[in-house]
Design a protein around this nucleic acid. Structure first.
Lengths: 200, 200, 200, 200
DNA sequence: AATGAATGAGATTTCATTCAT
DNA sequence: TATGAATGAAATCTCATTCAT
């Protein structure tokens, strides 16, 4: 990238980051360009020097959040030992209820709402890319498990199902009132593990 | 219900049904009250004799679609024999790709988008009610399977996980570009069935 | 009046009276024809058998209230002795703060608001008629005072001014936040009485 | 005020002033935002850069009219000599019938109609402020009269009563068909002056 | 005489985006 | 490069009144 482009990229981040708090208050969709400009301390017109349109702003915000989440996930996965531990980290987004994580979760919820509502190919593609990233991570977890002799070989066939199950957990947590995510997870994963764990 | 109320209820349905096609063209959220009135062949003001507000119209449309889908599901479940057959019927919404079913699926997608985006407690509650209905159906399928000696007793513990998995399938189909729903389903369900099927 | 007309007149009153409470809650202007019909226990269309239009309903309501107030005023004036006593009764509408009187006052306020806002000749004429009625009453009070030797002859020239002053008191009470009506009245009337009272 | 703010203030005035004629034709309440925008030669959306809402536009219009009237009043009062002359100037709004003054009078009428009709605390408070301004002016007139030896000391006690009387004159002129404002004023004020004027 | 279903004109307000400076 | 004033399309909802039954 040219130095020019790099600078632009930096400014995009800066602007997007400046409205993090605002977004958690009123939501991505409800934010106005005027608000973004004000909170970023620049003019409304200037926004359009760095972003194509409003959607592009939202895109950048989502991007930052997800990149951050992914980075944290990768780091924590590296420190984990057992397969089950890793799996729990992998499900952290839907299981953990501390403030930090809830922010990520709600951001993801808003992101999904956009993907579902609009015919927005760019967002959809972005979603696919991220999915592949996550799939690769999950696959790695299982492969490591197999290599370490923790899991049966056949367990690799479950990766996609578990990925799907994770999406389902997210959706249910997002759309149901008193959904007990943890209990649903525990029951299901325990059962699955019975199936795929190698008896030593 | 008084005859009065019944008539109102009928008219609501009639109006809501009249815009089925329009909805599939432009989406529930994008519809305008003026359009609904025109297509229903009545005045704009008349709409408000039967609906509280625009949201109420969308609500009725969703309701009709879901009720219809549920009715069909129940009927087809009654005719099915094996547990696996029933399970496939239960997953029909996300698996089948004929026009009729795609309409239901897209309706469900729009519905979810609304549930996720707005602070719309009514929709959310409605979603919860329907979820319970579906959970009951799935549980029944498994209980019948156990009773008929097809499934292990412990398989009942998987009901909630599978329900969640179904949501995940829906979400992935909605939000990913070339997601192979059927293959994901087959792989996962086959594996699960290995676990829970009684060897005869 | 023909018996038919009399019956119509009675029904008008009945309908108008039925919404007295509602009016005090939400105001004459804010009432809807549907509400009037419901509270009167008749159909919306039936309203138009007895009233020309919505304005006509309001007109009837105002009429009833003012007639009632006038009747009470005349009765109480007959029982009063001294001129000053009578004058206080004459100012009762703006001075007294009990619930009953406040209802009349607020009704009058709404009435004035209508007279001022619309170019409503009928209301305006009605207002003039009532004004003449009140002027006659006030004049009578003063004439009696003169005849009884309480007041100077010239005091009759003040009748119109005092009538005007009373309107001013009403307007200020209606439009100012902490207007001390009683104190304004006392100070003014005392001063006036010094001027017009005959020393005995 | 920042230059920013000053410009906004100026533009508010400019927009409000541009619809003066329109208002006299159709009334403040009947004006639409679209009409204001058109007559001001700007877009509908631009209106909302300078005004909170429609009420705010009306508010500005009233403000301008009243400020203008007050300024003229203060100027003319300075030029007047005798107390009676000043008093006549003070009553000018209700007495004079030239076009210029009638516009102010009708503006005041519309303003009062709003104050009486709506639960509009802002307008009511504004009314109170202006009332205090006028009361101060009237008091000054009387104090000067006393100081110059034209009026008795006690006449100061009449200030509030006369202010009230003036409101009454306004209200009657607004709400009665053939009310003879001048005659009512002359008769009343002459009588009052007999009471309060010092014989020299 | 009584009804109440149907009507539709009409007005406010928001906000992403442009463009002249 | 930065700005922010100007834009205007677009959509909801109310309610007095009519009229067929």
């Amino acid at each position: 990238m040219s130095p020019r482009k790099v600078k632009k990229e930096e400014k995009r981040r800066e602007i997007a980051l400046s409205c993090t708090d605002l977004i958690h208050e009123i939501g991505m969709k409800n934010i106005t360009v005027a608000q973004v400009a004000k909170i970023a301390g620049i003019g409304k017109g200037t926004i359009y020097e760095y972003f194509e349109n409003k959607e592009d702003i939202i895109f950048e915000i989502i991007n930052i959040h997800i990149e951050k989440y992914n980075k944290d996930l990768v780091e924590s996965l590296e420190k984990a030992n057992s397969t089950k531990e890793k799996l729990e980290l992998f499900f952290k987004l839907v299981l953990e209820d501390d403030e930090e994580n809830l922010k990520h979760f709600n951001g993801y919820k808003e992101f999904l709402s956009i993907v579902l509502s609009e015919e927005n190919p760019r967002m959809k593609e972005f979603n696919c890319n991220k999915n592949e990233f996550f799939r690769a991570k999950l696959l790695k977890i299982f492969e490591d498990g197999v290599q370490k002799g923790e899991l049966k070989n056949e367990s690799l066939a479950l990766v996609d199902g578990i990925l799907t199950y994770q999406k389902g957990l997210a959706l249910r947590k997002m759309s149901q009132n008193n959904f007990d995510t943890k209990q649903n997870f525990k029951q299901f994963i325990d059962a699955i593990f019975k199936l795929i764990r190698l008896e030593k």
